[in-house]
């Protein structure tokens, strides 16, 4: 359903790694400019689903996708769609901060450079760093290597790196799980600020974080044959207070996972 409120949509999405089915029949809608959290016990396919949104699964040999993932109404898995263009418009932040072994400036400038964006690089870099709430920390040391930054700063650098491309969607794979609580709160604040202009999908195993940060929540579980499936999704407040499915209720109240 092409809807100006919908950014991404999956339709009966299946994912295989070789002979192992990792996702089965996932159908969901990701609304624009909201934070959608994908939660569930470990191994249920949350990260695999996230990687379907920017076709990063293709880098794993033997992976196969069935079904559709629609971005602005167009199936990103259709023949003729270039995955690099998908990744240019849908950015990703990884679980463990992974700045390149280059300077802070070069890290943020990498995306624009590689995608052939001309224009004032210094301006683009500065705006991305400001947007990621990192500018004040690094403005005097743009030429120094990014590896020296603290964990939280590195993760914000990775966010700035993604922001420099002005994506429409930002995928975050457990972005705070490698950080201390103070750095985590900073990133959560940042996320809420970014949601006004970007659509954000975050995978998290931390339910309190999902409750704090997200507008929409999607709960996934592993079925008997270890394939991941979507159990239910809806507004976060509703799901955490009156979940429709008993499995969701069990997970949220901590009976497992």
């Amino acid at each position: 359903m092409l809807n100006s409120l919908t950014s991404l949509e999956t339709r009966k999405l299946d994912l295989w790694y070789g002979n192992f089915q990792a996702l089965r029949g996932v159908s969901m809608i990701v609304p624009r400019n909201q934070i959608t959290a994908i939660i569930g016990p470990s191994g249920c396919g949350k990260s695999s689903l996230l990687r379907c949104f920017n076709r990063m699964n293709e880098l794993i040999p033997g992976s196969k996708v069935k079904g559709e993932v629609l971005f602005e109404g167009r199936n990103i898995y259709a023949a003729g769609v270039d995955p690099t263009e998908v990744r240019y418009r849908i950015g990703m932040v990884f679980q463990k901060p992974n700045p390149f072994p280059k300077s802070v400036f070069e890290n943020v400038a990498f995306g624009p450079r590689v995608n052939g964006i001309t224009g004032n690089l210094e301006e683009i870099v500065e705006r991305a760093l400001r947007r990621a709430a990192l500018w004040d920390d690094v403005k005097d040391r743009l030429g120094r290597t990014a590896v020296e930054l603290s964990g939280g700063q590195q993760q914000r650098l990775c966010i700035a790196r993604a922001l420099a491309l002005q994506p429409e969607v930002i995928l975050m794979d457990e972005p705070c799980s490698a950080l201390d609580p103070v750095a985590t709160l900073k990133i959560e604040d940042l996320m809420r600020g970014l949601a006004a202009e970007y659509t954000i999908i975050i995978v998290t195993h931390n339910m309190q974080q999902a409750a704090r940060v997200s507008d929409i929540a999607a709960f996934m579980m592993m079925e008997e044959d270890r394939a991941g499936a979507l159990v239910e999704y809806g507004t976060t407040s509703k799901m955490f207070t009156t979940p429709r499915d008993k499995r969701t209720e069990d997970y949220i109240t901590g009976r497992f996972g």
Binding site: T84, E85, R87, N98, P101, R113, V114, C158, L165
Partner: peptide, 23 residues
Amino acid sequence: VPEVHRLGAYALGATRWQVVRNI
């Protein structure tokens, strides 16, 4: 070369040769 650096570059929309040459 750590795999995470390659992944980070791919996620920014780099082509394979760009990843090789720049990272």
